[in-house]
Each structure stands twice: as structure tokens, then as C-alpha cells.
Design a protein around this nucleic acid. Sequence first.
DNA 1: GTAGGGTTAG
Length: 348
Amino acid sequence: MAKLHSPSFLHSFVNGVRHLSTLHSSLSSSVKRTPKKHISFDNVDDALALFDKMIGKYPKPSIVEFTKLLAPLVRMKRYSLVVSMCTQMELSGVSHNVYSLNILVNCFCQLGRVDFGLSVLGKMLKLGVEPDVVTFSTLINGLVKASKFSLAVSLFDEMVEKGYQPDLITYSIILNGLSKIGDTDRAVRFLRLMEERGFKPNVVAYGTVIDCLCKNGLLEEALHLFSELKVKGNRPNIVIYNCLIHAMSNLGQQKEVRRLLNEMMDSNISLDIFTYTIVIDAYCKEGNILEAIDTVRTMRKQGIEPDVVTYNKFFCLLCWIDSCCLNCSKFMVVCCLLTLMSVVNPWN
DNA sequence: GTAGGGTTAG
């Protein structure tokens, strides 16, 4: 990946990490993460009550106990709350560690304040807490989410330069960023790079790039990756099928759409509301109201209830009707159509 | 012991 200039604010934080990198590089490769067992709370109030109890205790529970309490709140997306709890912990004399500070970095990033997240990195250095791959990955993700992809790449390069070993999650974050900015070329190359470096891209990673290719009008390349995925023994999921079907449908390749739908059925992959809506949209656009209605019936039989987006597709019929009946007012056509539908109830 | 990512958007 081409290197980009790191802006000065990033340098100031990241350069401070230099003296810590040697120690880290010797440790990072041997660290393995254990499977997560999540603690859960019925509601936020329970967590807060426990937090108050812990804060008031003497001696204070360990930082590990506090992070166990903060993590479920992060999963509940209570980011602002977690930030204020971290502040309260500090004021009560609880010493942070890399886990709790990473939680804080993540909360700032999720709140769209990656700048505060970077400040926490500075704070870590002051406190003598060594950042790790999670700290950097979280910040890189924050930058990607804030559409600051160049800065995300700079930080990625910096972390590698300093001897931090990016892992599968770090690579996936960058891959998402490349797809988000629509850089199809680099996204495909990055997928290859991941493979070369021993991080075998999974179905989601392939899905990210396939979607990126579809959105940028590169259906053939997308289909190539799709074949590659299958050849490697992976089972494409519904998201990938929907991306491809949507792209094919937009190009009017209905024969190809049918081929993929059959393939899904052969592989026992159930169509979802997205798939059905794409199919209905195509029928409506070509004025095939009977097939469109029949598709609604089929999806309902499958237990999938059409929603407002699905029904809205029927209004595309107006464009088709408009082009056929130039003398007819659109309003009249809508009235007739709705009356007819309410009388006949074609969905049942 | 505790922390970070994940593709469709019809």
C-alpha cells in the first residue's frame, strides 16, 4: 500500500510510542486471545448500581473488575455513559490499564470523537501504559468511520514501522476503509496482501470487496472473486448473493439473476426480504405486475412479511404505466390501481 | 481475567 504523509498531530502521538515498540514486538506474537465470555446485565440501572457500589468500596476492586462492568455497557452502545464512568473511576483513584483505556478510546471513536481517542493515546504514554494492537486498531477504525482514510492508513503504517503486528481485525478494518472509499483496485490488492501475510480472508472479507466491485460497476470482477470464494471451499452467504443479484438486476441481467436464485436454492440458502424486494423491483420496472404480486405471495408463504420498501417498489409501475398510457393522468392510474388492489386483495 | 473489526440496504 502506498504510504501517505502523516499529519503533524498524528506524528506527535505516534512518535511518542517509539520507545515502547521493542518490548511490544517481542511480546505481541506470543499473545493469544481466549474466547470471550460476555457478562450481561438486564438493564443499565443494574450496571450503574453495581458501579456505585464498587466505587464506594474500600479497598477498590481491581481495574479488571471495572472493565468487566464497562464492556457490557459498550456492547449496549452506552458510550457517553462509559466515558463518564471512566472519569469517575479516575477521580476515585482507580488506576487504568491498557484494557480500560482501550475501552475509553473505543467510546470516543464511536461517539465520533477520534481526536479525543488520540488524546487518550497520549495519556497512555504519560501514564506509562503501553498501547497495543487493539489501541491502534480501535483508532484506525475510528478514523475510517470518520471518513479520514488517509489518516487511518498513516496510523497503520506507523504502527507497523514501530514493530506492532497488525492482526486479522486490523487488516479487516483497512479493507473496509478501502471498500468504503470505493478504491476497488486497492481493495482487491489488499485482499491478496492479507492472504500473503497469512490472514486468510473469510466470507465477510470477500463480501466487502465483492460489494465494493458491484457498486463500482465491476460485476465481472465481482463474479470472479465470487467463483474464487467457492473454489476455495467457502459457502457464499446471503449478503454476497444479494449484492450480486442487485448489481445484475440493475444491469437488466434477469437471466443471470434467475441463475443465482437457482444456485441459492440448490445450496439451501433462503431468500430474505432484500432478495425478494430486488426481484419485485425488477418485475415492477418491466411492468410485470402479475409476477411482482406473485412474488409477494411467495415471500409471505415463506414467512417473510413485505415492508414499506417492498410495497414502494410497486410505485415504479407508474413509470411503466406512464410510458404506456400517455393520455392517462398518473393520479388516476394510482387511484384505479389502489382500488383494484383493495378489491381483489392480490397479496392473498 | 478485562479491550478492537465484519460485508447487502432492498
